[in-house]
Amino acid sequence: MKQYCRYCRNACLNDDELAYCSYKDEMLDGPALRRLNHCKGFRFCEIDVLTQTRTYQPRVAKPPAPSPEDFGQQTLF
Rank of each mutant, 00 (worst) to 15 (best):
M1T: 13
Y4L: 15
C5Y: 00
C5G: 03
Y7L: 11
Y7E: 02
C8W: 02
C8V: 09
R9Y: 01
N10E: 11
C12I: 12
N14R: 12
D15W: 02
D16L: 06
E17Y: 03
E17H: 04
L18S: 09
Y20I: 04
C21K: 01
Y23H: 13
Y23K: 05
K24N: 12
K24I: 12
K24E: 15
E26I: 12
M27S: 14
L28I: 12
L28Y: 07
L28Q: 03
L28D: 01
D29F: 05
G30F: 08
G30K: 08
G30Q: 07
P31L: 04
P31I: 06
A32M: 09
R35M: 11
N37R: 10
N37P: 00
H38T: 14
C39H: 07
K40G: 05
G41Q: 07
F44D: 08
F44H: 13
E46K: 12
E46W: 01
I47Q: 10
D48L: 02
V49F: 02
L50T: 00
Q52K: 11
R54K: 14
P58W: 03
P58T: 07
V60I: 14
A61D: 09
A61F: 00
P64D: 04
P64Q: 06
P64K: 10
A65L: 12
A65V: 13
P66V: 09
P66I: 05
P68Q: 06
D70W: 02
D70N: 06
D70K: 08
F71R: 05
F71W: 09
Q73M: 14
Q73F: 15
Q74G: 14
L76I: 10
F77P: 00
